[in-house]
Write a protein that binds this DNA or RNA. Structure first.
Length: 472
DNA sequence: ATGTAC
């Protein structure tokens, strides 16, 4: 399809509605980033045809090709006007997200203990494909409590502290989880993976604050220059994946009954307010809670290592997902509307004073955590007033090279040596997996962050660089 | 992302 992009400003491009598009496409990017995005713009156009979509079909600067929706896509549908929910608008890794913990020490004080910390993490953090997790559940009943209570349940059971809940999106758990909509197979897959990283771009990193762009906001978030941090990037493992699979199938079968046609089968959807829509959202919320509990238990395991090896405490800066659909109220054309906001590879970025933000940081806007590529930088951003795209921003650096291509570019051993030479301790589970994640395989995360800030979606607070990487 | 294909 021929696409015409109109440049509205250097970081904002518009695709005028045509054909079945109900709204325009709005792509936030720089000219450079746009070059890699060309193919996935077709997916931005497809999303614009969804029933009930309002505003625009948005794409963040890290847009790349995904299942149905582009990764980096944001779309909101009007619940009270036939708006749909689509599992493809969340993706397979439901509730994939990032958690940042701040240590009570800087690089200099932690440096002597770092090898011990890394070896401890190497032993303690389950990772890679398949089963394994730090928490051995007592049985299916306990999984139910996790699906219902998220990290709130993990903290109740002694695996965390109160701040882990106040500084987590949704206070650690969403209330509308419906375990009855989670299939037996999804439960089976989830049972043995609570407290595990997974593979691919998921990671646990020991980092240091390399640069602070706004000292006041950084301090409120709990960050100062040279401070050591831990960043955890992971999702809902096989459970979320299975939930996506199950509900895409159910919606694909049901769509006809609602008279819905979509340009791509991967956009299977039904109205939010339908049995299938409610079932998906209930199961998705259960996976969201599983994802939070997963990150909570990995934090707990990490804290034990830091305490034992370095007598260092870790406190939560924030935990936020970049793969979720949420029912939120926003103003559209001057009226308050109940919307289903899909964010897929896009991070919620609430503005200052939003009532859902933790009280102690409310005036600064929501912390947004951007995981970088192994060996490069990660960022802490903050939501800004008037943020566009229903208060959303980027989520990281998208891939530009396939796994296969990446593994051909560099040998795992060589990459490990290169990282170690650069002062980054590496604890990979497999060298092949490490090679697939080589930094050259990804876009420049700094360019993505710069474009997001330029587009008025967020502002930068701090840049973090890795001291040690634990990978699947 | 993912018991890396049902």
């Amino acid at each position: 399809m021929e696409l015409t992009l109109v440049e509205e400003n250097p970081y904002r491009f518009r695709i005028e509605p045509r054909g079945d598009m109900r709204v325009p496409g709005i792509v936030f990017a720089s000219h450079d980033l746009l070059e890699d995005a060309e193919k996935s713009l077709e997916q931005v156009v497809n999303v614009a045809t969804l029933p009930g979509i309002v505003g625009a079909s948005y794409a963040m600067p890290d847009i790349h090709w995904g299942y149905g929706f582009p990764i980096g896509g944001v779309a909101a549908t009007d619940v009270d006007d036939g708006g749909v929910v689509s599992p493809g608008g969340v993706g397979f890794d439901i509730s994939c997200g990032v958690r940042l913990l701040a240590a009570d020490g800087d690089r200099r004080s932690l440096w002597p203990a770092l090898p011990d910390v890394m070896d401890g993490l190497d032993r303690a953090i389950p990772r890679g494909a398949g089963p394994g997790g730090v928490w051995h559940l007592s049985g299916p009943g306990e999984l139910e409590r996790i699906l219902d209570g998220g990290s709130r349940y993990a903290v109740e059971r002694g695996h965390g502290e109160e701040r882990d809940l106040t500084r987590c999106e949704d206070g650690g758990a969403v209330a509308d989880a419906d375990g009855a909509q989670v299939s037996g197979r999804a439960r089976e897959r989830g049972l043995g993976q609570v407290g595990s990283l997974g593979s691919a771009n998921h990671f646990l990193e020991v980092q240091q604050v390399a640069e602070v762009y706004d000292e006041r906001v950084a301090a409120a978030f709990g960050l100062v220059r040279d401070q050591v941090c831990v960043m955890i990037h992971c999702g809902s493992r096989g459970l979320g994946h299975q939930i996506c699979t199950d509900h895409v199938r159910a919606m694909d079968r049901a769509m006809n009954r609602y008279g819905i046609t979509v340009p791509d089968r991967q956009l299977a959807c039904t109205p939010v307010d339908s049995p299938e829509g409610r079932a998906y959202l209930g199961a998705m919320a259960a996976a969201a809670n599983y994802g939070r509990a997963n990150r909570q238990l990995l934090s707990d395991a990490t804290r034990r290592i830091f305490h034992r090896a370095a007598r260092t405490r870790l406190s939560l800066v924030y935990d936020v997902s970049h793969n979720l659909a949420k029912l939120e109220t926003h103003t559209v054309d001057g009226a308050r509307r109940r919307l289903c906001v899909h964010r897929k590879g896009a991070t919620r970025a609430f503005p200052p004073w939003h009532r859902e933000l933790p009280e102690d940081i409310r005036e600064f806007g929501q912390p947004v955590l951007i995981p970088g590529t192994m060996g490069t930088a990660s960022y802490v951003l903050a939501g800004v007033p008037g943020g566009d795209a229903f208060h959303s921003t980027c989520h990281g650096a998208g891939r530009v090279m396939s796994r296969h291509q990446a593994a051909r570019t560099v040998a795992g051993k060589e990459l490990r040596a290169r990282l170690e030479r650069g002062g980054i301790a590496v604890r990979p589970r497999s060298l092949r997996g490490l090679a697939e994640e080589t930094p050259e395989a990804y876009k420049d995360v700094s360019a993505v962050v710069e474009a997001s800030e330029g587009a008025g979606l967020c502002r930068t607070v701090a840049r973090l660089v890795p001291l040690g990487v634990v990978k699947g």
